[in-house]
Amino acid sequence: MNQEDINVIDQPEVLKPRMVTIDISGKKYEVPEGVTVIKAMWYAGQEVVRGVGCLGGFCGACATYYRTKDDPKVRTCLACQTAVQDGMSFTMMPPFPARKALYDIQKLQDPKQDLFNLYPEAPLCRNCNACTEACPQKIDVREGVWKAVFGDFQSVSEMFMDCVMCGLCTPVCIADIAPNLVALYVSRAQGVHFTAKPARLDTRIKEITDGRFNDEWRKILAMNEKELAEYCATVK
């Protein structure tokens, strides 16, 4: 065996592609094992427009409910990030009419209090934990809702940095809370009202408006191609 033959990764799924039977919205199809849920839909001949976005696990367009063979529990996933297995059944989540509050984030007077006007349902959380279980990003959503209510906006903004806004936490909520929208409001408020202003950024903006770099600009923009290339080579 030469070097090249040795450096090949074993992939049983490629060597002997195994077809598995899955169930898409109530119909059975044969698809190759291990492809993503979205690719399985394409393989099954379905056109997917609603339900596909970034294909990279970031946009949350592909929120999906699924169940594996013999398991009674209906789970949730991002269809572009989940591989199919034999006996799996799934269906995509339709758009859910959650209510998003409208606000002018900069003009809020008391953001922690305003939360209760904008999302009066937030403090009614009944601790069922369904939202946490539904979250494909493994965020402790329930905890986040409580932290929001108790005014710990900073923790919420950190916890929900992973939130792809798939909305899977919303239809399951027995208190009609849309935790991701609450968290979005809280995170923005945290950024606008409770985060230190970066002083150095203002200094830089002032330097630019005051023309501190004008001499350097003049020098550089007056250079011919060759001079500029030489100058560039000196910047390391």
Binding site: V192, T195, P198, L201
Partner: peptide
Amino acid sequence: AKWLIELGVL
């Protein structure tokens, strides 16, 4: 960058 920060980008 300032504009984004003022909109709440963390």
